[in-house]
Amino acid sequence: MTAITAARSPSHWWQSRVMRRFMSHKLALFGLVMISLLTLACVVGPWLLPYDMLFIDLRARFAPPFTGNHYLGTDPLGRDIAARLLMAGRVSLLVGFIAMALAILVGTLVGVIAGYRGGWINAVLMRTVDGFLSFPSIFLLLALSAALKPSPMMITVIIALTGWMEVARIVEAEVRSLKEREFILAGRMLGLGRAHIMFRELLPNVMGPIIVAATLTVARAILLEAYVSFLGFGIQPPLPSWGNMLNGAQQYLAGAPWLAIIPGAAITVAVASFNFIGDGLRDALDVRSDTV
């Protein structure tokens, strides 16, 4: 079965057709650059800024952007927004990535098993997927987060819990169409185990759609975290996240609009970047898609 996969790999991965096509997609490239910069800024930025992000200075509260060294102004406690924005970025991006990883893991597992095994296993798994999909996930998300002790991990899990179904559907459909193909039938003839066929033979062949879905899931997870934290159910202070920086911003909207504008802009940039990358990957990997 090494022969099956060998056929599609050229000498180096960066010379591959996929890579070339992705690199020629300007928007995707732009997204990749933005995300890299944003991630870099969030990782090293807080050390470079002259303000300790958590230092509360009530005399300096509500400073508008470009006041002294506060490039993005200060919040109601007089903390530097630039520093907090970057710290919050760590949290929001991390939540996004981990939620994506979990959602992809669960979705892929369910999709592969349901697609390959078929029969009643498929029926049970896919009806559960339908069940989760058939009410607005925001209901489930809010019900869960209004009910559980909100820790960052908990929020991540909850977001993942409402995001795995799409992946499961995509993978299931792909696997179902692949499993009757010759190389799989050949594998079965050779007496390969079920697990082996599912995860060593089928999975690599559905990686394309999964990667695209993964990128879009990160974008979605960041949006969801923002909304839930905006309502006050999500990430709890003193830990900042882009979403909880917006919590309370509505109240100060008239006097301090930058409290609302800045974190929202950061969310939009991050999410748009992921969406651009996802779009580029879709073209590059030739994934036909049912979603935008």
């Binding site: 958590l54 109601p76 006050g232 159910f233």
Partner: peptide
Amino acid sequence: TSGAHLREQAQQFIQQ
């Protein structure tokens, strides 16, 4: 209560 932002502000201030 989570999301009560005036209390959250006071909490963070006292914490410091």
